[in-house]
Structure formats: C-alpha cells, structure tokens
Design a binder for these strands. Sequence first.
DNA 1: GCATGATCATGC
DNA 2: GCATGATCATGC
Length: 467
Amino acid sequence: MKKGRTYNRLEIELISKSAIGKSINDIMNEEVITIEDEKVANKGGLGQLVEQYLFGIETNSDSEPDFMPAGIELKVTPYKKLKDGNLSAKERLVLNIIDYMTEYKNDFKSSHFWFKNNTIQLLWYLWEPNKDNKDLKITHEKLLELAQSEDLKQIEEDWNYIIKKIKKGKAHEISEADTMYLGACTKGANSSSVREQPFSDIPAMQRAFCFKNSYMTQLVRKYIGNYSDVEKILKGTTNTFNEFVNDVISKYKGKTQKELMKEFNIDSSAKSINSMIISRMFNVKSKLGETEEFQKANIIPKTIRIEENGRIKESISFPAFKFTDIVNQDWETCDLREELETTKYMFFVFKKENNDYVFKDIKLWNMPEMDIEISVMDMWIKTYNTIKTGNIVKYIKNGKRKTNFVGLRENEVCHVRPHGKNAADTYKLPVPDKLTGATSYTKHCFWINNLYIKKIFEEFNGGLNIE
DNA sequence: GCATGATCATGC
DNA sequence: GCATGATCATGC
C-alpha cells in the first residue's frame, strides 16, 4: 500500500481523472486496490476512503504531503447546488494544523503550510441532501498549484497576517474572519482544545490553516461552472485587494455625498444612495458586495452615517430571514452564526458636516467571538422560540402590532425588526400567530444595534484605517 | 429623544 | 415581482 505514496504527478492525474463520475461505492467495488483491514478501511470520511481505495494510501497525519516525492497533497471536498441554481462549496478546505510554536519562525515559502499545501490535487464531489455519503459522485478534479495561482499574493498576505498575530502574542485572538482567502479555522472538539503560543501565556484555540468557504465557492464556480458572469474589481492590475481598496479610498476620501453623486452622475432619492456611491467608487456596475473579490473574501460592504453630534442613528440590517428557515435550524449551525463567524464587514463611513455627508474612511471589522456566542446566541434563540411558539404579536395599538421579538434595548448587540416593502410584504409562518391567527407575517430581519456600532468605532479611538 | 414599526428606490 | 440596502416617521 505504501507504494501509492510514491505515485508521480502523471499517475496521480490519471487516477484522479479515472475517478470522475464514480461514487465511493463504485470505487470500492472495483477493488483496484485491496484493503486488508476492513475495519480500518471503513473508518473515516469520504476523503480517507478515497485515499485508501483510489490511491492505496493509509490514513495519516504526516507533516509531509500525501504523495512524496511528488510533493502533492490530496484533498477530497464537497460542493452543492443552491436553491437559486448557483453552485457553492459545502465546506471550507481544512489544511494543516498551525503549530504556533514553530510556524512563525518561517517565511511564507519556507513555511510548513507551503511545504504541505503548495500543490493540491483536488477531487470535488457533488453533495446532495438525503443521500448516503458513499453514493455521492466525484465530478471534477483540479491540480491547484499555488505558485501559479492568481491568488498567490493574497494567500501570502493572509499567511503573513496570521503569523503577525502569533508574533504579537495574540494567537488567542485569531479569527477566521481576519483574512481573505487563507483562513485560520478552529480545529478541535470545542473551545477547550487549546495550545500554547510562543509570545503569551494565554492558551490559544487550536487552529488549522484553511481555504475559506467563500474562497472554495469561488474555485467551484471557476472550475465547475457558474462563474463567468461575476464582476471583478481588479482589472488589469497586479495590486492586491487591500492595495487597490486603499487606492480607491484615498481617491475619494473627503468628498461629500453631493460631490460624489455629481461625479458619478447619480440622480436618485434612494435610501441606499451611499451604497450606490461606493459601488461606483470601485467602478462596479452591480453591487460591490457581489463582485468576485468581495465574495471570495466574504466581505460585506455596509455604509454608515454618523451625525454631527457623533450619533449613529440607524442600526444595520441583514437580509430578511424566512420564519420557516429559522425554526428548521439550530443555533450551532444556523445561517446567522455561520455568517458572523466567517464574514468581515467593510464599513464605509459618511459623517454629516454642513448639511452634507462627507466620506471619511472605511473600517474592516468582524464580530468578536464573545459577542456572537453570548449576545447574538441569546437573541437568536429567543427569536427561534418566538416563531416556534407562534407568539409573535404582543398587542395591537393604533393599528400597529407590537411584537415579542428581541428589541433594541433588550440586547447589547442585535435585535429583530421588520424588513420588507411594507407591512403587507410577508413570509409564511411555520406556526400561526396565537393572538392574531396570522399564517404569514411581515418580513423581518436581524439588525446590528446602532449603539453597538458606535462602540466599535469608539473602541478604536476613531481610527478608521483598513489595518 | 429614541425605539419601533413601516416603508422606499433600485436592479435584476 | 422580489430581494436588498437603507432610512423614514410616529408615538411613547
């Protein structure tokens, strides 16, 4: 069996191509490679079964790539079809565990990450619900050579960012949302899986390098389909995303809303006027958040208005949720938690001066783990219970329905409020509302509290820089 | 003054 | 037609 590890690049390619169209069951039934120990062979996930049956490699946690001396790492990873027909990755691609005690001593190209993952043989299988894992079919393969990748510069920047945190003695503050394509995801049963770090006594969560779900989705769309119509912001430049963003920001910093509307020929009274302006700053026809780079990095742009007295009047909305989706999820795996844990928000700050809003700067931010796990969780579970028990309307006064949803003052971080065209714009309720008997209800969404947003900016001393 | 329910313009 | 980003407007 060990022989499998010595396959050369061509052999690996041929074997990979031979697997296309086959399920794990198909591959196992072919018995190209005899596995002596059935018990061992049946353990583990699909990736391990493919390693064993297709390539004859024993499951290992070697620090070397799976194939040596070819220097190729094998990864089997799922993608799925979304309701709207688009494809997306089903998971992040987990790479090697980060050894905080040693990895910081290396440069990017001499790092353990690079040694193990610079060339990855990807096998994609299509995940489908309610199907036995072993019946899922491998549909595509791709040899990922990072040295040749157009994303190399960003990946290196991400690696450096993670290493910088280790060097600052802040390994315990690393978040997957810190970076763009290469992330540092938690790895271990729970938050008590910790390791030592070199420049601090605080134990840090065990983490592994990973290609973030959003980045894997872009690879899926690029190599499997549904990608060609996504707009890019980096056109004909060798700049990284951060460099390009900084260029754009410095170009428009200090200009007012009125000036920018004139410059971009925007004549509109839309409430989302600042959102339209920032798309135009980047020369984007569609929405800025829908461009390839923002999607890959899971960055959602949001505009913020600060009043003359420093107040932020409005909370920040999310897309409306479906009541039926909420009750079909649990906190551990719900959409909101997934989004907050993996998404970075790019705040575009407009400050009111002389009856106009001046574009000041941007700030990249992701919600601290602690706020997600305490305040947001509390709100989400209350929302779940309110919907699940059909206990939405508290009373009706002056024709307006007061609800039991978590309000602005009830939670430090977030609340629930309507978000639709009008009150008649509704989604179905899974359980009829007890008081009114309504079977559908005005669309609602989660909101990040305006006061919490204000605090974010204050904590950083008003510093609004991208770093 | 501020929390809360309601609503608007856009773009696909 | 509908989801979305966002702000408006009322009344406590």
